[in-house]
């Protein structure tokens, strides 16, 4: 554990809580891609199967359980509780275009051809692209509420901090997880365009982020 890793995990947690609170308080999930949230729930489910097989630390176990619970709560709020506010007409990204290649890749490129390893790899690859329905939705409607952009900012910050964590771990422990690092870098690149808009539009302006 290093400061980048801890800050990354905290950013991830903050992002998820921001989204959950936004939906809960406004009683609306307008502007939120339910598809992205389902993909994140699948990511956590397939990655954290090791909760049943290996104990790493209390921190690790608690965080995994919290991420799982919060992601399922988010999906519940979007598709059940506040279903009538869900903007399905603009949440039209075809997730099969993500799921099929990600499934194929996880069978081809993994550390071992076992169900657990393939599912872990699948979760890493899927996480890299899971935000695409949300970004697609913003592009389609041309705007995002500022609270939604704060959510995306913390999600992107989490990814950037994980890269710093890997650089740190590589130099101090010789740790290098090729699958996680390559997908993590790809994932972070998706946020670059958004980061630019966030700084120029949201932080300097106020209210909604509108696309040029």
């Amino acid at each position: 554990m290093n400061i980048f890793r801890l800050a990354g995990d905290v950013s991830h947690l903050v992002a998820i809580i921001i989204l959950l609170l936004k939906i809960w308080r406004s009683k609306s999930c307008a502007g939120i891609s339910g598809k992205s949230q389902v993909l994140f729930a699948i990511v956590f489910t397939t990655r954290y199967l090791d909760l049943f097989t290996v104990y790493i630390s209390a921190y690790n176990t608690v965080m995994k359980v919290v991420f799982l619970a919060l992601s399922y709560a988010t999906v519940y709020l979007i598709y059940m509780r506040f279903r009538n506010t869900y903007d399905s007409e603009n949440d039209t990204f075809r997730v099969e275009f993500l799921l099929v290649p990600v499934t194929g890749l996880s069978f081809l490129e993994n550390y071992a051809f076992t169900p657990m390893e393939i599912l872990w790899t699948f979760s890493i690859f899927l996480e890299a692209v899971a935000i695409m329905p949300q970004l697609f939705m913003i592009t389609k409607t041309g705007e995002a509420e500022s609270i939604t952009t704060h959510y995306l900012f913390f999600l992107g910050l989490y990814r950037a901090l994980y890269i710093a964590n890997w650089v740190w771990r590589y130099h101090t422990e010789g740790f290098f997880d090729q699958i996680a690092v390559v997908s993590g870098v790809v994932q972070t690149i998706f946020y670059c365009d958004f980061f630019y808009l966030y700084v120029t539009k949201v932080l300097r302006g106020r209210g909604k982020m509108t696309l040029p």
């Binding site: 090791d50 290996v54 630390s57 690790n60 991420f67 550390y111 071992a112 290098f176 090729q178």
Partner: peptide, 10 residues
């Protein structure tokens, strides 16, 4: 990295 390595990251 080996399969038996513990994946300690989230």
């Amino acid at each position: 990295k080996e399969e038996t390595d513990v994946k300690d990251e989230l």
